[in-house]
């Protein structure tokens, strides 16, 4: 079993995607279960990172070996990742600003303290 594993190539597109899926699931679990708003935001960052990993993996494994295509197609995935990172930065800034405002109102970052919109 181990020797068979050693012979195989581990660093493949499939395995990278599986890693990304695992990270995404972990992040989703964190978003669903955590009560601290800060940790919820952090789990969101994990999910975003998993998506980035998917895009880079597809781009790198599928397109880098095809010099015939124009440059947009070949590095498009990486450009998307840059956009995602930029949006993540904006999201973190606004999210943390909202969090600080909420903390000023309630002296707490626990999600259960913010249920006033719930009927």
């Amino acid at each position: 079993m181990v020797s068979a594993m050693l012979l195989h190539q581990v660093f493949t597109l499939e395995n990278t995607l599986l890693l990304a899926a695992l990270l995404f699931s972990i992040g989703a679990y964190g978003v669903l279960t955590r009560r601290n708003l800060l940790t919820v935001l952090m789990s969101l960052e994990i999910m975003l990172n998993a998506v980035n990993l998917v895009l880079v993996a597809f781009n790198s494994f599928q397109w880098s070996a095809r010099p015939a295509f124009e440059i947009q197609a070949r590095t498009g995935g990486q450009v998307f990742v840059m956009m995602i990172i930029a949006v993540a930065a904006a999201e973190a800034a606004v999210g943390l600003a909202i969090l600080v405002t909420l903390f000023r109102k309630k002296q707490s970052v626990d999600t259960r303290d913010f249920q006033r919109l719930q009927g």
Binding site: M42, N52, V56, S60, A86, A88
Partner: peptide
């Protein structure tokens, strides 16, 4: 892993933006 996927620029940007900016903001808050 980005680096191993030969996405050098993204690897550095990942460290710069996520670890160097976003998480610094989190830590600070």
């Amino acid at each position: 892993i980005f680096l191993a996927l030969s996405a050098t620029f993204l690897a550095v940007i990942q460290v710069l933006v996520y670890a160097g900016a976003i998480m610094v903001l989190f830590t600070f808050v």
